[in-house]
Amino acid sequence: MRWRAAAAAVLLLLLVGARAHVAPLRAQGAAEAPASRPAFPELVEIPGGPFVMGADPSADPMAFDNERWSPSQGTGMVDVPTFYLARHEVTVAQFAAFARASSWRVDPQALAGPPAHPVVFVSWPDALAYCRWLEGELKRAPEVPGRVRQLLAEGWRVTLPSEAEWEKAARGTDGRRYPWGSEPRRDRANYQNQGTAPVGTYPCPECAHGLADMSGNVWEWTSSPYQPYPYDASDDRANLDADALWVMRGGSFGDPARQVRTPARGAADPGARRAFIGFRVALVKR
């Protein structure tokens, strides 16, 4: 009980002190782009700074063991520099534009879904190939906002978010369990359901940074190898002898509330193409 009270106090303090900074960068016509033209993702600025990462199973009964920071510490603080994250998961229509424009071989099932739904049946390399292609498109397209063009010119890259970036964007700086707060809400996310929903279907005004579908709909690939906590971005290139396993976050339409919590960590074989795995892009300085 003492632990729970302490955690609640910390959460309250964080909630009071935190201010969600939302600065959308929408490419002109992104939302209604015709199928023949690539619809660029709307990028949201996630300000730099520390946030609480992980979850302590002794304090949060829904937490999984792999969310615990270390044997002696339930959660950890991670400082993440400013980056931008797409408001929505990449859609079938967006991915189809990439498939049409490049010679990358995609699983036909990835293009079979409704255009506005998140793309699925994409492997981790497929997701990165899309990011590389998108980066080139963003550099060329005249309708891209000047800020994005400037960042790209400065060497920022379009890629997948790291799991720390993903978690910070999902839970904000107030350590919430779900993007909208502490309790599961089926009106806020697509989970415990039968299939994917069009991206942004579930309105979530309370969600950190105004991001959509950070819980549920589809698991989202990240750029982090699956390793035990504590999280340290500098060890991403370690353990080269281990079989590859990459972190995915957010849970999917078929998962229970426990899996769609912001600190929940999933992992998959990078070659996996599944009906419940998709991704969203990030613009980062690496």
């Binding site: 981790w124 390399p125 991403d236 080269l240 281990a242 590859a244 396993l245 070659g271």
Partner: peptide
Amino acid sequence: ACEARFQPGCVNLLD
């Protein structure tokens, strides 16, 4: 290489 779960292939793909 990455799809064959060879971790250096994934790391090289990323960077």
